[in-house]
Design a protein around this nucleic acid. Structure first.
Lengths: 130, 130
DNA sequence: AATGATATACGAAAAGTTTCGTAAATGCAA
DNA sequence: TTGCATTTACGAAACTTTTCGTATATCATT
């Protein structure tokens, strides 16, 4: 039984921040801002990142520890739940709700390693067993 | 060898229109607008749809036949190519580029019929054969 | 030809998202 | 303690996307 949190879906810029927090764990604005600037060529200002993270905190996508002057932010949105929600929306928008055709497209285009194929086959078997 | 068209990616609202055109073939603004309003509870104005389709035509996502007073619009963006491009962006944004974890999530969440599973298995085999 | 219904054209408002400038607070080091 | 660097707060500009109001044209019916 998982509790239903019903957070708003993150925007594109917000999702980038979540990705970093999911991977790195609790972080400061400075750290996130630097990571973002590593990933992109376009320099993004410090206060821009700050503002985004403040908005995200207001939306409950993040929480923060304000004990020290430098606040430490934590992802409240759970990665799996967020991906699931985004995927659902995406399947509907781009594949008219057909998860299967999305899967076919995903497998068809990207080169997938044998290991990954095995993972997927294992999952399919598990589903088939019910 | 497929020709590279390099169209801009459609916005959400534009994608909805493309979906209808892909399914129904060449259509008028009136028809698209009615379809959109069937799908959604929120009523969308006729001129709103018209404007969108005019913009899309400018962007070359659509083309139109203006011979008769009532223009007939045609999707220029190819469904498969568009889906492929959108998928690539989505995998990067939401799954950090891992098509496999997207596939796992998609298969895990949505209930997939045996037929569909068979389709996917067949594709995997085909990939494995190289 | 006049009327009414329906079409396109187009600008601009409205809404949503991203970006930043500036001010004020805090901590650190000379 | 004075001054410099760094931080948060916050409003608003800048952009993007969506929506619509209004003008004008066209067609069918009378």
């Amino acid at each position: 039984m998982s509790k239903k949190s019903n957070l708003p879906q993150p925007t594109d810029a917000e999702l980038e921040i979540l990705q970093i927090l999911w991977e790195a764990g609790p972080s400061t604005v400075r750290f996130i801002n630097e990571k973002l600037n590593e990933q992109q060529e376009k320099e993004i200002g410090y206060t821009t990142t700050l503002k985004l993270m403040q908005i995200m905190t207001e939306k409950k996508l993040l929480s923060r520890n304000t004990e020290s002057r430098t606040h430490v932010y934590l992802a409240e949105a759970v990665q799996g739940d967020t991906q699931k929600a985004l995927l659902k929306k995406f399947v509907n928008a781009a594949f008219q709700g057909s998860a299967t055709s999305l899967v076919m497209q995903a497998l068809g285009n990207h080169q997938t390693s044998q290991e990954e194929l095995d993972e997927i086959k294992a999952l399919i078997e598990k589903i088939e067993k019910g």
